[in-house]
């Protein structure tokens, strides 16, 4: 319970810091936001109107309090360009981003687990070295380059999958998945390397344990030992990283969404940036940051319930 209390306190502090920072990013913006919003050709009257609409004529502390109060009711403000409530805009795009992240993780795990097991089993043989080398090369490919390479080969040359376009889930699962496959692959083909290395290294340690030698002595087939005996005790750090990566992926989906024209949160944020719609930018960044903090908190928590040692140890930090 004390562990939970300490974690909760930290969560509250971090969320408070995140909200304040997001507010300050806009409040401390150099120059006049109203000018930025209306553009250089606006008349003074228009600038004044925008300034009033945004409440910029009032002191910062007052604006902060009002912003927080609205935030507490789930109100993230109204887009300056589309007049759409930012909170609703984010929620309507959330499923796309989540689907992309989940699909990417599933593919990454599907690649990482068999290859990790194989590499651990054939440690330092040619297959292990090849996979390691390929992994090293792939992890050095920036996600947007991976996306373009996939578009070039799979859509343009082979014509197997569409390069852009989004089909909602309501129009059929297969059509929907087809549009998500390449974006998810662009992330997964880089992500799997980290997972694979983790699993491989943990598995190598497990394979030296006595109960594995025992299983071998009993004459159990290799695949049985690997999958039924060794995999589970070796996958602990894999699962942790998997959770933590969900947080990191929120940032990573940004650029992938914009390349494949998927209407997710990342694209909302980028559109906001390009149209200088700072209410949208602020809302998206706040949402992404808070989601990131919350996910990491939950992962921490689940992990500590799975492994009681963590609750007792790891006092600081």
């Amino acid at each position: 319970m004390r562990y939970l209390g300490r974690k909760l306190l930290r969560l509250v502090l971090v969320v408070a810091a995140v909200t304040t920072l997001t507010f300050l990013l806009v409040a401390l913006l150099p120059g006049d936001i109203a000018y930025l919003v209306v553009g250089p050709t606006a008349t003074p009257a228009e600038v004044e109107a925008v300034r009033e609409q945004l409440g910029l004529d009032r002191p910062m502390l007052v604006r902060y309090a009002e912003w927080l109060a609205a935030l507490a009711q789930g109100d993230l403000g109204i887009s300056l360009r589309t007049s759409e409530p930012v909170g609703e805009a984010i929620l309507s795009r959330l499923p796309v981003t989540i689907e992309l992240m989940v699909l990417a993780q599933v593919i990454a795990v599907a690649l990482a687990v068999p290859l990790g097991v194989l590499c651990a089993y054939r440690q330092n043989r040619w297959i292990d070295r090849t996979v390691t080398l390929v992994g090293f090369a792939m992890i050095s490919v920036p996600p947007f380059v991976m996306a373009l390479v996939l578009i070039f080969t799979v859509s343009l040359r082979l014509d197997w999958l569409p390069a852009t376009g989004y089909v909602p889930l309501s129009e059929g699962l297969w059509d929907n998945l087809r549009t998500f496959l390449l974006p998810a692959l662009s992330i997964a083909l880089i992500e799997w390397v980290t997972l694979m290395r983790l699993l491989r290294n943990d598995m190598i340690v497990t394979l030296q344990e006595d109960f594995i030698a025992m299983a071998r002595a009993k004459g159990l087939p290799a695949w049985h030992i690997l999958l039924r005996h060794a995999l589970r005790p070796s996958s602990f750090s894999l699962i942790t990283i998997l959770g933590l990566q969900i947080g990191a992926l929120i940032g990573g989906t940004l650029i992938i969404e914009s390349i494949f024209a998927l209407p997710g949160i990342g694209r909302l944020l980028l559109t906001g940036i390009f149209s200088r719609d700072y209410v949208v930018v602020q809302g998206c960044i706040l949402f992404i940051a808070v989601a990131y903090v919350l996910i990491n908190f939950l992962v921490d928590l689940t992990y500590s319930f799975l492994d009681p040692r963590i609750r007792v140890g790891g006092g600081h930090g």
């Binding site: 940032g251 940004l254 930018v281 960044i285 940051a289």
Partner: peptide, 24 residues
Amino acid sequence: VVAVMDIILAFPALALLLAITFYL
């Protein structure tokens, strides 16, 4: 130091980077 670093790390890096370049 640890608390401040944790807060900075609490932001997803790319989103923070976009925010900084957007504002500056």
